[in-house]
Structures are given as C-alpha cells and as structure tokens.
C-alpha cells in the first residue's frame, strides 16, 4: 500500500487531480466573486495551480532537488530536471509583480470611486 503511494505515477496523478481542483476553485472565484480583491486573488490561485502542476509533474521519486550545493558541482541524473524549477521561479516573480500592480490599481480605484464591486464599474462603455 505504502509502496503504491510512493510511486511516481501515483504522485503525478495526485498532483494532477489536486492542481485541477485548485484550478477549478480559482476559476469559480474569478467568475463568481464580485469583490475586485477576491477576483485578483482567485487569478493568483489559478496561476498557483499551474505552478504546482508543472513542478509536481517533474517530480520523480528518489531524485534530489536541483540545487548545486554541498559538494555537488553539476546537474546529473540524481536530480530532477532543473528547467521547470527555474521557469516556475521566474514565473512566480512575474506573478507577484502582476498581483502587486493589480492590487495597486484596485486600491487607487477604490480611493477615487469608493467602489470595489466589479458589477458597479460603469465608467466605460458606449456613450449614449
């Protein structure tokens, strides 16, 4: 039983199902929440689910994290593929920047209009 739990394919399945669940949670948040903060947080959750999926799918049982330290001088077969990790690190940084920027906009918008409900944003649209 425990052996099964420790198999790479099983773990990949768990990761896939888990990240899909998180993706759905985020998606529902994006599509149904009215508060701008919650919408952006939901978007962030959706992104995180993708990160999780990507990193998780590259995890292999018995391999180390791709960190060059403690006498290890180069990447080799004992480590998992380093590229996804590097990619996700970069993507997380970008994600944080985008989230910060969006929250700035939301705060500023709230200061000017006193409104944080997406349905009440009626500044734009066809003039009559």
């Amino acid at each position: 039983m425990l052996e099964t739990l420790n198999q790479t394919t099983f773990l990949h399945t768990v990761v896939a199902i888990g990240s899909f669940t998180i993706f759905t949670i985020g998606l529902v948040g994006v599509l149904s929440k009215k508060n701008l903060f919650k919408i952006f947080l939901s978007l962030s959750i959706v992104e995180s689910s993708l990160f999780l999926f990507f990193i998780g799918s590259h995890f292999e049982v018995g391999k180390a994290a791709p960190i060059v330290a403690d006498g290890i001088k180069l990447f080799d077969g004992h480590m998992v593929d380093p590229v996804p990790q590097a990619m996700i690190l970069t993507t997380i940084v970008i994600g944080v920047a985008v989230l910060a920027l969006s929250l700035t906009f939301v705060v500023n918008y709230y200061r000017l209009s006193g409104n944080i409900d997406i349905d009440k944003m009626d500044e734009l649209g066809e003039v009559q």
């Binding site: 978007l43 993507t91 734009l124």
Partner: peptide, 27 residues
C-alpha cells in the same frame, strides 16, 4: 483617474487569463 483605473483593472483581469492560457500551452 477613475476611468483609467477601471480600464486598467479590466485589462489586467483579461490579461491575467491570457497569460494563464499561454503558460498552460508552454508547460
């Protein structure tokens, strides 16, 4: 101003969705 921020927020929501899909494809 209000209009600009409103537009930027809209742009960011849609843009975030776009980058999620792009990221999915790349992954």
């Amino acid at each position: 101003d209000k209009v600009a921020y409103s537009g930027a927020i809209k742009y960011m929501i849609v843009g975030a969705v776009a980058s999620i899909f792009l990221l999915l494809g790349i992954m």
